[in-house]
Design a protein around this nucleic acid. Structure first.
Lengths: 230, 230
DNA sequence: TACATTTGATATGTAGGACATATCTACATA
DNA sequence: TATGTAGATATGTCCTACATATCAAATGTA
């Protein structure tokens, strides 16, 4: 008995490879020195010598940083620091098929949370032009009951537009990445549920109503999803 | 004139390296085949031959996937598919010093959005035990005006606990990663601003008040930050 | 037969050498 | 001034080699 408990507490010792170490070393190096994008870095050979590893190892570490967008490399020019695309690496991993059920559920909730929190910034930034466009989207979806595929693409278009109206590019991209997962979780439902507040209703609230009314409307719109949470 | 316009339209052609291609190839391969974690993958040499590249290139690509947590490797055992830590790669890049101002602002807003959207899930999951712990945190912060460092660590402890009360691990971790950036943006203020609703007030609302009251309270608590947004 | 030990094969981790290619610098030329 | 040439340099790719860890089979022992 005691043995099993002990084993459960044990975690595999971190078999850090040289590439892992060098990667971390380089990331710390880049952060500390407060470089600016465009600054040149030592060459691979210099790094290898300085760190006492082979050029292979350095290249593996650099390959990772390159993927993260932290550095760029040009022939002869050497390496230069660059601004990472903070969502880029996220995107690579965000696939419903390779994420465990518990995390999928977490992300589902994360998106619901965002949706409910949008009102304040939305009311700060919304414009007449955006409202018209949103209304056009909502109206084009009016003939309801066109099947699952149409329903999902409608949701994507409408809610995507709302995020875009916040003027926050990062938020908009982030939500776009979450969509496949959101869609996946919804597709697990047997019976598609629809809230009592429609897209058109939400548009009308946005036009004339208050933040609080919009939030209440969004809650009703998403109610079927919230009801699924325990 | 025409020449300059032409040049403006030109973008550098994507100099994809072999490692980039192989990385994408492998990711698609892993997704398509619907492997389960633990499944064994071909050896580096087999992959290299199958793709017609050197083992070096394959190793660079695999090194990236290893960083993302998509695969694990053991000597002799070969490679096995594993569940990526979706936030792990995010963490590597999330440093205020290497993110541009506009994205920092976006992330600042993202956190405000989350904070305002928490109410629904929070009221679904909060327990008496959690409330007590949250109250303890809030009370321990009562003697105000202990300087910037104490103020920030108080914010972190209190708001962190709220996220934890949602029972959503991904959300909690995500918020924790956003904290340095949030703190950084705040630290740019000359005069620290404090909302009219304190942590204690929020706890009291959580104990007896409604979701709507909590949301209103949180809005007041965060008002100084929202006022900074245009 | 059952179990423990040894041995060999295999895949990864690391090192180092080689060369093609792109591109920067300097110099030469019209 | 603009263009073209030559050399130097850093990356991109390939190859070979070997240490090490580990699985699997062979061997030895009770």
């Amino acid at each position: 008995m005691a043995k099993i408990d002990l084993i459960k507490d044990l975690v595999p010792i971190a078999q850090n490879t040289m590439a892992d170490i060098v990667e971390k070393e380089l990331r710390d190096y880049l952060k500390k020195k407060s470089f600016k994008p465009g600054d040149a870095l030592p060459s691979e050979l210099e790094l290898a010598e300085a760190l006492g590893v082979s050029r292979n190892v350095v290249r593996e570490a650099l390959s990772r940083l390159r993927m993260l967008g932290m550095v760029e490399t040009r022939k002869r020019r050497g390496m230069i620091l660059s601004r990472p695309d903070i969502l880029g690496s996220f995107e690579r991993v965000l696939d419903p098929l390779i994420i465990d059920a518990s995390t999928l559920q977490d992300i589902f909730e994360l998106r619901l949370t965002l949706e409910m929190g949008l009102a304040d910034i939305l009311y700060l930034r919304k414009t007449k032009k955006d409202l018209k466009e949103l209304e056009a989207i909502a109206k084009s979806q009016e003939p309801k009951g066109k099947g699952q595929a149409f329903r999902i693409s409608s949701e994507v278009a409408f809610h995507g537009k709302i995020y875009q109206m916040t003027g926050n590019d990062t938020l908009t991209r982030f939500q776009n990445m979450l969509l496949p997962i959101f869609g996946y979780v919804i597709s697990l439902e047997k019976v598609p549920k629809i809230g009592t507040v429609s897209h058109i209703d939400l548009v009308n609230i946005l036009k004339d109503g208050s933040k609080e009314e919009f939030r209440a409307g969004m809650m009703e719109h998403l109610k079927p999803h919230f009801d699924r949470l325990k």
